[in-house]
Amino acid sequence: MEPRQDLRFCQTPDRVTLACAITGSGPRLVRAGTWVSHVECEAREPDTWSTIEALSHHHTLLRYDPRGCGLSTRDVPPFGFETLVADLETVMDAMAPEPAALLGISCGAPLAIAYAARHPERVSSLVLVNGYARAYFSAPTTPPHLLEEAKLMLATIRQGWAQEKSPFRQIFLAQLMGSDAADPVARHLISERMRLSMTPDVAERHMRINYAIDVKAECALVQCPTLVFHARDDQMVTADQSRKLVAWIPGARFVALDSDSHVLPTRREAGRVFVAETLAFLGGARPDKPRLSRRQKQILGLVAQGMTDKQVARELGLSPRTVEMHVALALRALGCANRAEAVLRADREGLLDDVV
């Protein structure tokens, strides 16, 4: 059974129907349209849904499929960036009449920036993830090799978008997912969403728009508090792009994520940092702080110093088996898959500060 989300629909002035998905309760958080979008597919992806659910604990999260994508009208006339901004205006007018927070991920970031600049009275806060203001064809200093790469992607997208074994699909997923592409389950889910999200023709239209975006001038017009995230090793949009956003948007704050994935952080420490920082920024409560026993804190503190289980056992006068047990309990309490993640999270939560 799929997780619960309410589906609503609104219509643009040119009679395109936009599909919206609503989860949670509380102040509105609206995700600007982004491509590879299919709100029903997202609900079937456990990792993606876990992040959606975490944000929905404190907010009414509204996501929508852009025109030509997902459950929205698929057969659409030619469109450009301004059309996509107008579609966001339609969604905001229909679904978020009061001032709301905007979440812009990837190419949704410049959409959110443009809307916030043009409608400052409608946006309470701005959260941008792996975004940019200028793209390959609009930035004056794009290196020649990146321009050639962009042209090659455009030349092959129609033939390769829906073909699972095409070189385009392999390169695109590798850049989109980073090391997560090595997980066959995660790769299959994103690949399936990619296939179902739009036709090759619409995918090419969106890519051409994305490669030509330029909202640098509008960054200076943003008046609301802004939080900017970027994966340190993003292979699709470099972290330098978000650092430029922070320089161009007045008062914006930057948070680097230890990830190489371009999609919304969902797993491991990067996902937890994103959720915690976003909820705190938007005024919601942070997720409950995990609890560790004094012994678990002691052991993690020594693990953080590079000690093995045997060395920890000798240091504390315990058996290696007892140390292993405490480490396993700490991993469970912290929701981490391995010791490195556990040490990072325990340190970030301040759980190791009082270890003696």
Rank of each mutant, 00 (worst) to 15 (best):
N130T: 09
A96R: 02
A117M: 12
A100F: 15
A114D: 11
N130D: 14
L88S: 01
G108N: 06
A112F: 03
A96Y: 11
D87V: 10
V129R: 01
G131D: 06
L88A: 05
P120I: 11
A101P: 13
A139W: 13
R122T: 05
A94L: 08
G80Q: 04
L126G: 03
F79K: 01
R122K: 15
E82H: 09
A135L: 03
F79D: 01
R118E: 13
V129W: 04
L84N: 02
I113Y: 01
A114H: 07
A112H: 03
P99H: 11
H119T: 09
G104S: 10
M92K: 04
L88Y: 11
V129G: 02
S138L: 08
E121I: 09
C107E: 09
A116E: 05
Y136K: 00
S124P: 09
G80N: 13
S124M: 06
Y132C: 01
A135F: 15
G108Q: 01
P120K: 09
C107Q: 13
F81C: 00
G80E: 10
S124D: 11
T90E: 08
P110T: 10
A109M: 11
S125R: 15
G104Y: 01
V91N: 03
P120G: 08
L88N: 03
T83Q: 05
Y132H: 08
V123W: 06
L84D: 00
L88R: 04
R134C: 10
A94D: 14
L88F: 15
A117Y: 12
P110Q: 02
V127I: 14
L102Y: 05
L84T: 01
H119D: 08
A114K: 03
V91T: 03
A139D: 15
A112Y: 10
L88M: 08
P120Q: 07
E82Q: 11
I105A: 12
D93E: 15
T83R: 02
L84V: 08
Y115L: 06
D87E: 09
M92A: 07
I105Y: 06
H119W: 14
L111W: 03
A109H: 10
A116R: 08
S138M: 07
L84A: 00
A139Q: 10
N130C: 14
L111C: 05
V129A: 04
H119K: 12
G108Y: 00
V85Y: 02
C107W: 13
M95N: 07
P110F: 05
V123E: 02
M92C: 12
T90N: 09
L128W: 00
H119Q: 14
L103I: 13
A101N: 13
E89I: 04
Y132V: 06
A133M: 12
P110S: 04
P99L: 09
L126V: 12
P120E: 10
V123P: 01
A96T: 08
M95A: 12
